[in-house]
Amino acid sequence: MSGLSLKYEVPGDDFTRAGEASSDVKRKLKKLGYDPDAIRRVAIAMYEGEINMVIHAGGGQAFVTIEPQRVDIVLEDHGPGIADVEKAMQAGYSTAPDQVRSLGFGAGMGLPNMKKYTDEMTIDTEVGKGTTLKMTVLVNHKS
């Protein structure tokens, strides 16, 4: 079976819509009969990424490829970039403004969560240009 490729626009100006793409991917994986644990890991990692794109980068695009043994997620934005990736990966470190915290996010858990729930994750970022985040969830892998 060749992979199923999906593309989503993640709007940057509407916090209430953040998560729509992840929700759609989750529904599709459920329909395709994927393992519930793998579905949850894909959904959480992509959702955190989507929230990050809305909070920090003014939105972006999400590309998802679904294959029998793996799900690949690429999140691309043209936001401010991440100045210190190592710091951003630390649990609890956040540059999100207080207003974001009042929405229930910005606890500095986004990137650490994505790393925790995926099997591979790479961050390609440049200050002033944007960030591309690639994540892979292996379907038979048991976390």
């Binding site: 998560g19 992840s22 989750k26 959904a43 229930g104």
Partner: peptide
Amino acid sequence: LTGLMNPQVVRTAEMMD
């Protein structure tokens, strides 16, 4: 259980089953 009142509460619950 939460005191937060925006749609992301439902989305978070959804992602977590």
